[in-house]
Computed example of a mutant assay.
Amino acid sequence: MNPVTYVEPSDPGPEIPLDGGDVTEGVVRVGDTVRRPLGFNAPLVHALLRHLEAVGFAGAPRFLGVDAAGREVLTFVTGEVAGRPRPAWVADEARLASVGRLVRSYDDAAEGFVLPDGVRPFQGIAEPPGMPPAPPYPAELVGHMDFTPDNIVFRDGEAAALIDFDLAKPVTRVEEVFNAMLHWAPLGDPADADPPLRDADVPRRCRILADAYGMSDVDRSRLVEVAVLRTRRSWFSMRQLAEERGGGWARMWREGVGDQIKRREAWLERNGAAVEAALTAP
């Protein structure tokens, strides 16, 4: 799939570096556009963004093409994004519920997207040896799968848009909700949580997200199982990306993300029953 060449206006304006995110470096704003290096998942991401535009989903940037420097060009999404240190409002339950509604809106819009011929997720990256099994449920849509506070844009206290689709891939709806819970409940050892969320009632926050999303009873019963299986796989995936891709992936691995994933798995083993009880209670 050949990307469209972006035609610059006569006076595009200066390049303003944008902070945030864990991996992608060199992101800048130019006028009303954002310029990002082309990622390894770019063909899928560009096709997905075109689909979201075609179906009228307002909560994503528009893909405009590739500029003369070889960077993808996206529309700039206005609003508020949680940077670091995390603001206190990441613990706000009204904002949390709005995250669940935005994820549901995105998933509904993405459900009709079909991968174009020849486009596959994470092309050129093979599954590493020893990778644990994936959850045994068929994919339902191409999910965003990176609902960090850096990637959700808020307006007037409501989650309004998603950015950074680099990890998009075919998944189930329960995997999408798990990913949102991972970052916003947050699912994991409290020692690894951002300060505003270290004393959070995690099962309660999981329930708020599930209710706002409109999660099915079946998916609620599968959530903990999927969370454990995905966590086990993520250790292998993160190590592989650190070794093969370097950059921000390698930095995160050096900073201990692998140990954090192991602590999350242990926390889920200890607390999964409480999370499931909160999700499935009448």
Rank of each mutant, 00 (worst) to 15 (best):
W267H: 14
P85T: 14
D192V: 06
R251E: 15
V177L: 15
A94Q: 15
E176L: 01
A200V: 07
H183T: 07
R205P: 08
G188V: 13
P149I: 14
M131Q: 06
L167D: 15
V45W: 03
M1P: 11
L52S: 03
K262C: 14
D107F: 07
V177Y: 13
V45K: 02
L162G: 10
N179M: 15
R263E: 04
S237N: 06
E140C: 05
A47I: 10
A134D: 13
F40Q: 14
A168D: 11
G118F: 10
W89M: 04
P14R: 08
V202A: 01
P138M: 02
V77A: 06
A82M: 06
N2I: 11
D219G: 05
R29N: 14
L18E: 08
E53F: 06
E8P: 00
A161W: 02
T280D: 11
G13D: 11
G79V: 04
R207Q: 04
G65Q: 04
W253S: 08
L197K: 01
V23G: 06
D166F: 09
V174D: 15
A139C: 07
A159C: 00
M1R: 14
R35C: 13
E176Y: 04
P85L: 12
V4N: 06
A69L: 14
S10I: 12
A69R: 15
P170N: 09
E111W: 03
S234Q: 13
V55G: 01
H144T: 00
V66T: 12
R222N: 05
D201A: 00
S105G: 15
E244S: 14
S221M: 11
Q240F: 13
R29G: 13
A191D: 13
L229D: 04
A82C: 10
D107L: 07
E276W: 09
Q260H: 06
G256S: 09
A94K: 15
Y6C: 05
G13E: 10
R251G: 07
L279Q: 13
T148N: 00
A139V: 05
V228M: 11
L49G: 05
K262V: 15
N271Q: 12
P3S: 14
V30Q: 00
L162K: 05
L102M: 02
V153R: 00
